[in-house]
Amino acid sequence: MLGLQYFKFQAVWSPMFLFATIAVVIAYLYIIGPWREKHFPMEKKASGGQIALFISAAILYYITNGGPSSLLGHIMFSFHMVNMSVSYLIVPPMVLASIPSFVWKKVFSAPIWQKFKFLMHPIVTLILFNMTFSIYHIPIVHDYVMTHFTVHRVYYVVMLIMAFMMWWHVITPVKEWAKLAHVKKMAYIFANGVLLTPACALIIFTSAPLYSIYSDPEVWAQAMGYCVPGDPRDLLAQFEGPQFFNMFTVVEDQQTGGIIMKLVQEVTYGVLLGFVFRDWFNKEHKQEDLDAKLLKEAMLVNHNK
């Protein structure tokens, strides 16, 4: 149970977050269904795979930000890094791939978005996401964000937006808006992996505790006060800190979190690199076959003459 049995239902499952997630899924189903049929009847329907992908993304995001894994992320750093990996490396590309292109065109058709077009340059999105993510894992920044509720919510929303902006150039749901060809896209994914490595290395190879909320009971209780009803002092009286739940030492838990983050990053980027390479390979061979066919037809025409 990993200690979840010590907490009340609302602390483990965050009912309001659950209802919000269900509302988002219902809105998605309405937009790709009745709303599309009414306003965009000629647009292609979302496939069953896209629907399954969106619902899966919604479930993953709920579990890691409002469900059991979110609570465990306030107790163990390893779970915190699972949550970060899923929220910013897995969910955004799933959402981008699951929403039909006509929705994106409708959302970003307003002229006001032209004023922010410079922010979608691939280099800008690359730097913004990795900078935002890496700064968050500087110990003093991380502890401050985790112990200040409003800052925590705002920072997480900003990171999510940066993640969508970064992944847009890899998934690009509106193909005519693509800014990167296949080879550049592969270089872009590789660069993301390189830029994220220092933050992971800092966590994995440091032999001392970095984050107070996982080593200092007072700071931990303050952070837990935002996700567990009641007085944080009661948590200290009952559990005496996060180590009550963790079979690892603080440093071992910290290193495990860094390894999880790096592994998820490598697997995610590797899978997407494979998809991009496959598309590029198929496109190149399709063009070669077409060129060969045209050459053969031209030779036959000349021969007949």
Rank of each mutant, 00 (worst) to 15 (best):
Ser70Met: 13
Leu272Ala: 00
Ile127Glu: 01
Met16Val: 12
Ile259Ser: 01
Val154Arg: 01
Tyr226Thr: 00
Ala20Pro: 05
Lys286Tyr: 12
Ser101Thr: 09
Ala23Met: 01
Ala57Gly: 15
Tyr226His: 12
Met247Tyr: 02
Pro111Leu: 12
Phe118Glu: 07
Ser215Pro: 08
Asn304Gln: 14
Ile260Trp: 08
Ser70Asp: 12
Trp104Gly: 02
Phe205Cys: 01
Gly274Ile: 07
Lys184Gln: 15
Ile127Gly: 07
Lys44Thr: 11
Pro100Tyr: 10
Ile22Gln: 01
Ala201Cys: 06
Lys293Gln: 09
Ala201Gln: 04
Pro34Asp: 14
Pro93Ser: 06
Lys117Gln: 14
Ile171Arg: 00
Leu294Glu: 08
Asn130Ser: 11
Phe7Thr: 12
Leu60Val: 06
Glu218Pro: 04
Val86Ile: 14
Pro100Ala: 09
Leu294Lys: 01
Ala110Met: 05
Phe54Ala: 11
Ser134Phe: 04
Ser85Cys: 12
Leu294Val: 06
Asp231Asn: 00
Phe149Ser: 06
Ile22Asn: 02
Leu195Ser: 08
Val103Thr: 15
Gly73Val: 12
Lys184Cys: 00
Gly225Asp: 06
Ala221Asn: 03
Val174Met: 06
Met120Tyr: 12
Met131Cys: 08
Ser101Trp: 14
Ile135Lys: 01
Ser212Gly: 14
Met76Leu: 12
Val174Ile: 04
Leu53Glu: 07
Thr206Gln: 07
Pro173Tyr: 11
Met165Pro: 01
Phe108Tyr: 14
Glu288Gln: 07
Tyr144His: 05
Ser69Arg: 03
Lys117Asp: 10
Phe277Ala: 05
Leu290Ile: 06
Leu235Ser: 11
Ser69Gln: 15
Gln287Ala: 10
Met165Arg: 01
Tyr144Leu: 08
Gly67Ile: 07
Ser215Thr: 04
Asp291Pro: 05
Ala298Asn: 08
Gly257Cys: 04
Asn302Trp: 03
Ser14Leu: 14
Phe245Asn: 05
Val170Gly: 05
Val301Pro: 07
Met81Val: 08
Leu160Asp: 04
Val276Asp: 03
Thr256Met: 15
Glu240Arg: 12
Gln254Cys: 10
Val107Gln: 01
Leu263Asp: 13
Val12Ala: 02
Glu240Met: 12
Ala201Val: 03
Trp220Leu: 00
Lys175Ala: 12
Phe19Ala: 14
Lys105Ser: 10
Phe19Asn: 03
Glu252Asn: 08
Asp143Thr: 04
Gly230Ile: 04
Phe239Val: 11
Ala208Thr: 14
Pro100Arg: 04
Thr132Val: 00
Trp168Asn: 07
Tyr155His: 14
Phe102Ser: 13
Pro198Asn: 07
Pro173Ser: 09
Lys179Tyr: 13
Pro198Cys: 00
Ser85His: 09
Ser70Gly: 13
Val158Gln: 01
Phe108Met: 09
Val250Lys: 03
Leu272Asp: 04
Ala208Asp: 13
Gln287Pro: 00
Gln287Trp: 02
Ile22Trp: 02
